[in-house]
């Protein structure tokens, strides 16, 4: 059994042989949330290596010392019922370790579920990220811009992604900026991310959602504030508007490349739990306070029967959902 030693040395060298930490996205953070998580992960790895070391040392010692040999053929192992003190030790120490890690967990979970400490005093940039089939739609209500399959954000700025889906559950994940969160059809979820280094980061859907899942990637480009303003201006000048019909077509398509529009779909297709009455027609003056992730009563999202109409747009709060339900062809 002592053959196992070299085996694990092999794995250790395997880790060292890797092309450095730079290719390990999760441990190569470019934003405060990802940095918190990277630190948490490394801390937990160190603690766990300690636990492993205790078990392995004891294991190797016991196997070497008490293996059956020619010399101990007459040895009759004693009858042992257990030892209260020893058992108390290996109950207490794990409890202490778990308690420590619990504190770390709660603290870091609070950290990453809120705006990063460095950017606490900023008003976050709100971006609605919604998924349909195997695409991501990013709506910037403040700028009145919508993009498909890429998202540009300014560095050193708190960004609040509000996630939802036009179908299956997907999960927005930009490993170098922070953890992931589900986008679902009946509930809005919030993901706080910020970048502190300019660069292009891979983002993707992490939650399996069918045929095109593997290709559901997007680019998250963190740019300086100046570049970001220029990009916004540029979009306003060059891109065209997103009409309701075009958006419907977009939803039906399985894959598309990048797209850019000068208005968002939020005005005619409001997200779940965030209704038209919070929003003016062009989506520019949104009520920013309603960014919670509380469960919404589904009846508000999918009313049946439809409530009496107040405006042209919110008479059927989420026409796209129903539209898609009936026209989606599957695979």
């Amino acid at each position: 059994m002592n053959k196992k030693g070299p085996l694990y040395a092999l794995f250790l060298s395997l880790i060292l042989l890797l092309p450095g930490c730079s290719s390990i996205a999760v441990l190569n953070p470019k934003g405060p949330a990802a940095r918190t998580l990277s630190d948490t992960i490394i801390l937990s790895i160190v603690v766990m290596l300690g636990v492993l070391a205790v078990v392995y040392i004891l294991y190797v010692f016991v196997l070497l010392k008490y293996r059956a040999k020619k010399s101990n053929e007459d040895y009759i192992p004693p009858h042992e019922e257990g030892n209260k003190w020893l058992e108390a030790i290996w109950i207490t120490i794990p409890i202490i370790i778990v308690a420590f890690l619990s504190v770390v967990t709660v603290k870091t979970t609070v950290d990453v579920e809120n705006v990063a400490a460095d950017y606490k005093d900023q008003k976050p940039l709100v971006i609605y990220a919604s998924s349909s089939n195997w695409k991501w739609h990013f709506s910037y209500p403040e700028e009145g811009i919508e993009t498909v399959n890429y998202v540009n954000i300014p560095v050193h700025r708190a960004v609040e992604f509000r996630l939802y889906s036009f179908g299956t559950i997907s999960s927005l994940w930009i490993p170098q900026l922070g953890g992931q969160k589900y986008a679902m059809s009946d509930m809005l979820t919030t993901l706080h991310l910020s970048a502190d280094t300019v660069g292009s980061y891979t983002g993707r859907n992490a939650n399996f959602n069918g045929k095109g899942f593997a290709h559901m990637e997007f680019e998250a480009l963190a740019m300086t504030d100046k570049d970001y303003q220029e990009w916004v201006k540029d979009v306003k000048e060059t891109a065209g508007p997103l009409t309701e019909d075009e958006f419907k077509n977009l939803l039906k398509m399985e894959y598309v490349g990048r797209k850019t529009y000068t208005n968002t779909h939020l005005s005619f297709s409001p997200p779940p739990g965030d209704h038209g009455d919070h929003m003016s027609n062009n989506g520019k003056e949104m009520d920013m306070d309603n960014g919670t992730t509380e469960h919404q009563d589904n009846k508000e999202i999918h009313p049946s029967p439809a409530p009496s109409s107040e405006t042209e747009f919110n008479s059927e709060p989420n026409p796209e959902l129903d539209e898609q339900s009936t026209t989606h062809e599957g695979h």
Binding site: A34, T36, I41, S44, M48, T105, T108, T109, Q180, N207
Partner: peptide
């Protein structure tokens, strides 16, 4: 087991989940 403890940490799991 120890990787299970790592995954149990909710914050860190945001990076491990589905991977």
């Amino acid at each position: 087991g120890v990787t299970g403890v790592m995954l149990a940490m909710a914050s860190a799991d945001y990076q491990y989940h589905n991977t």
